[in-house]
Every structure is written in C-alpha cells, then in structure tokens.
Amino acid sequence: MSVIDDKEQQAQGAFSPVGAFLDLLEKTGGAIMVFLSAVGRLATFAGRGIYHCFTPPFYPRLLLRQLIDIGYYSLPVVGMTTLFTGMVLALQSYTGFSRFSAEGAVATVVVLSMTRELAPVLAGLMVAGRIGASIAAELGTMRVTEQIDALTTLSTNPYKYLVAPRILAGTIMLPLLVLIGDVIGVFGGYLVGVYKLGFGPQNYLHKTWEYLTSEDVVSGLWKAAAFGFIVTLLGCYHGYNSKRGAQGVGAATTNAVVSASIIILICNYLLTQLFFAGK
C-alpha cells in the first residue's frame, strides 16, 4: 500500500495546470490532424475516382454489371422500404391530423415527405447497407489477396477498372431507384388511405397531385444522386484501403456502412437547407 501511495503522491506532485493544458491541446491537435488527414485522403481518392470516370479507357461491360447490381437488384429492398414507409406515414399523419380535423392533408403529407425526404434518405441508407458493404468487402478481399496489385501489373488502372464504374453506377442508379420508390411510397399511402382510412380514390389522388411541384421530386433526385455517390465512394475507399486479413476486410465493411450512413444524414440536412432555405 505504501508504494502505491508514494506513486500517487509523486504523480500528484508532478501535476501542473499548464502541463495538463498543454497535454489536452496536444491530444486535441493530434485528433484534429488525424481527422484532417483522413478527409484529405478521402478527397484525393474521390478526385482520382471522378477523374477516371471521364477519361478513357472506359469499361462499359463493367459499368453495365454495376448498374444492374446497384440498381436492379436493389429494387426489392428499396420498394419494400418505401411501400411500408408510405403506409405507416398515412396511418400516423391521419392519427395526428384528425386531432384538429385536418385529415384531408394526409395525401399531401405523404407525397411531400416521400419525395423530399424519406424516399431518398431511406433508399440511400438501404443501399449503403446492401451495396456499400458489398463493395467494401469485394474490394477489401481483392486488396488482401493482391488482386488489386495484379491489376496494376496487367497494365490496368484499378481506379478505372474498379472505382469509376461503381461510382458512376451508384450516382446514376440511385435517382432512378428513388423515383420508383416515390411512386411505390405514394402507392403505399394510397392503399392505407383508400382501403383503411376510407378516403375516396379520386379524392386521394387529387390531393396527392394538388400541392406537389416538380421541385419536390427533383430535389429528392438530386439528393439521391449525392447519396449514391457517397455510398459507392465510401465503399470503394474503405475496401481499396483495407488492411490485411479477414479482420481488415470486416472493419472496412463496417466503416463503409457506418460512415456512409452518417454522411448521408449530414448531407441530407445540408442539401435540404440549400434547396429550401428561405422558401
């Protein structure tokens, strides 16, 4: 006990507020440096990826495969998500609006919420889980099994061959998925509105169209394009820079999904402010 007490006293004796403050500053500065260097690496990676999207040689066969993988095969997931979200939105908004006799606004709330926010964000998050994870795992495995190095030795630029088709496909396909998701989500609201809440079909559709503007839909599609870019970019970035071994690939997959999801939510706020601030 006495030894421990001595050490504690020594430690306490060495304590100085200035030293502690400098230590805090050093740690904060270190964390900021790590963050900034990570942002720098990601920005450089993104820049290279975008550059190689627009410079030959192009790989149309690979792009087509990614368009099908990211777009067509994500359709069931996005469709189910938006369908049930539209349905639950109709139920919830009916419950809320009926308290002040504004049930008639249900259709408008459903269509505006779906097109402006929920379809792009939910599709982005679902695609982050499905595609972001799969891209990170695939590229991570290619990295640890030296397949990416092999590409370089076979005179093929990995950014052109692996990254560019995925980024392009994500940016092109997510708006299309969201457009379909918009329709399915509105249809979900229609089903609940007409068959459960007792709205007339024509009245519901009329209310859906009445306040909808092209800006509502287009802003959602722009968001979707941004989210598609974010998901595929982060999947590629984490997979491409995966560390050795199964653990490295696992970490790359998790990081791809988590970082894409967070950035989608942050970006969603910023884009919403950009599109609709002051309106």
Partner: peptide, 29 residues
Amino acid sequence: DALMRKFGMLFQGGALFDSLTIWENVAFG
C-alpha cells in the same frame, strides 16, 4: 502502363480474379 507491359508477375497466392473465368484471367493482360 506502357512499362508494365514488359512485365509479368506470378503472385504468391495466385491473385486470380474471383469474378472472372480461368480463360478471362489468363487473357486479362
């Protein structure tokens, strides 16, 4: 890229592309 055309490389683990068939792997370069 032009320099790499002078090189061939056999990797320790083979580093074959999983998503391609054997002939596509061999013919890749």
